[in-house]
Structure formats: C-alpha cells, structure tokens
C-alpha cells in the first residue's frame, strides 16, 4: 500500500515536471509579449514590471493584424474543406480499387513520391505558371497551391484508414441498390470522421503556419497572411521580440483553439490511419 502511494507520488511529480517543461516555452512567450525592450534586456525570466499591452497594440498595428487574419482564414478554411473532400474520395478510391487497377496503384506510388519533393524545387516553375495565369498575389491562387501540395499526404492517410473499414458494410448498401458515390457519402464518409478530423486539424495547423509558399505567392501587402507579417519584427540586425511574441500569441489563438477542439479525434485518427488492420 505504502509502495503504491510512493510510486503514485513519483508519477505525479514526474508529470508535473513534464508539464512545467512543456509549458515553459509558452509561458516565456507570454511573459516576453508583455515586456518592454529594456525589461527584456535585463532578464528573460523575470516578470514584466507592468502588464501593459503596448506590444500587442504595436503588433496589431505594424502587422495590420486584422487584415492578415482575414486573409489567413480566407485561405486556410476553404483549403482544409477542399483537402478533406478531395483526399477522402481519392483515398477511398485508391484503397478500394487499387487491387483491380494498375493506374490506381501507380497513383498511390505517385502520391508517396510527391511527398519527397521539397517546395523549393517547385518554386520557380510554380512562380512562372502563376504569373502567366495571373494567380500571383491572389488568395484563390494560394488556395490552389495549398490544396495541391497537401492532397498527397492526406490521401495517404485516408488510404490507410479506409482499408481498416470492412467491405461488408458497403456491400450490403450496394445490395440495397446504392450507387458507389451515394455509398461513399452516406455510408463510408461518416465512418471516416476520426481521420477527417485528424486531416482537418493537422492541415489547419500546417496551412496556418505556412511560410514557404506564402512568401513566394503573396508578395503584395493587402493579401499577406499572418506568418509573412511575422518578419516585420525582425530586421537584418535587430529584432523586436516583445512585439514578435505578441503577434505570435495572437496568431496562435485560433489554431490552438481548433487543435484543442479536435484533439480527441486527432490521436484516434492518426493511430487508426497508420495501422493496417
């Protein structure tokens, strides 16, 4: 009994230590966001003398925060919806029909291969194509690119998940006269809730934080997203960490909220999608 108590206590202590370690960077970011530059120079760990919001005001003004937030939402929300819809259908098709179709087996390999191509290699061709199609500095152009670069991985996740769903459910639907498309929407897609939540949450996070694509495609001030505005606080030789952290915290709020809301589906989806039953 005594042994159990000590081990429980140790477990709690270890968990508390782990929590402190994980919370430390966030806590430092929050503290820094309230400090003036002279305070930052004195100590990184100390509490701010006053909890003033100057950094937040400055960050909102300098980064035109509301406009960049609007742009980010306008780019990320439709992209995530399109990614979930398209990749669920493509993952389903590959998972269910690749056994009979060489082209689908090849498509599966192409998806996998495309994950290994870094965006830097595509940068110049993409820029040229976008310029000729007048898609540069447009939010819909950005959505096309984000969707295009995300479909392969999300389809890959769906393939693993769909393979875990028994055929028999769909077969009984077919016997009742359901077409394949209706069967997918009415029977299979609801069963993909966990992986869809995972794909949606992960891509919300990744697309929200995207820098590489946005820096190339969105060069005009009025279409820039939040991540691109972050560099406004970093000069060649100087940095305004107070404002940078204030802007980072403001921009984190929506994506953290989304992640917390979908957290229980994410772990489930990743585990099920990764293991072939």
């Amino acid at each position: 009994m005594r042994k159990i108590r000590i081990s429980s206590l140790l477990y709690i202590l270890l968990m508390l230590l782990a929590i402190c370690i994980f919370i430390m960077p966030v806590a430092l970011a929050v503290l820094t966001s309230f400090k003036s530059k002279p305070e930052l120079a004195k100590s990184i760990l100390s509490l701010p003398a006053t909890w003033n919001l100057d950094n937040y005001k400055g960050a909102v003004e300098r980064s035109d925060f509301l406009n960049s937030l609007k742009n980010t939402v306008a780019v990320v929300a439709p992209s995530v919806v399109i990614i979930v819809l398209c990749s669920s259908m493509s993952g389903y098709t590959v998972a269910r029909h690749s056994r009979d179709s060489r082209a689908l087996r090849l498509l599966d390999k192409v998806y996998l291969a495309s994950l290994m191509i870094p965006f830097q290699i595509l940068m110049i061709p993409v820029y040229k194509i976008y310029k000729s199609l007048h898609l540069l500095n447009t939010l819909h152009g950005m959505i096309f690119m984000l969707v295009g670069t995300s479909i392969a991985y999300s389809s890959f996740l769906y393939v693993g998940f769909v393979k875990g769903i028994p055929h028999e459910i769909e077969e009984s639907a077919y016997m009742d006269g359901c077409s394949e498309f209706r069967c997918f929407w009415l029977i299979t897609f609801p069963l993909l809730k966990a992986i869809s939540a995972t794909v949606a949450a992960l891509h919300t996070m990744w697309l929200w934080n995207d820098f590489n694509i946005a820096v190339i495609l969105l060069q005009k001030e009025n279409v820039r997203t939040i991540t691109i505005k972050q560099f406004y606080f970093f000069g060649k030789y100087t940095a305004d960490y107070g404002m940078a952290f204030a802007a980072a915290i403001l921009s984190m709020i929506p994506v953290v909220a989304c992640f917390m809301f979908m957290q229980k589906y994410i772990v489930n989806g990743i585990v099920v999608g990764a293991v072939k039953s």
Partner: peptide
C-alpha cells in the same frame, strides 16, 4: 511605386525567383 518588403533571409531567394520568372 509598388513596395514589396520581404524578410532579409528570403530576400535573395525571392529576388532570384522573380528574375528567373521574367518578373
């Protein structure tokens, strides 16, 4: 006069992408 401000680290990459893309 259209101003395009980019971060110092990406400046060279963006410049060369633009030059290579006739822009």
């Amino acid at each position: 006069l259209n101003i395009e401000t980019v971060d110092a680290d990406s400046h060279k990459t963006i410049l060369q992408t633009k030059l290579a893309s006739d822009d």
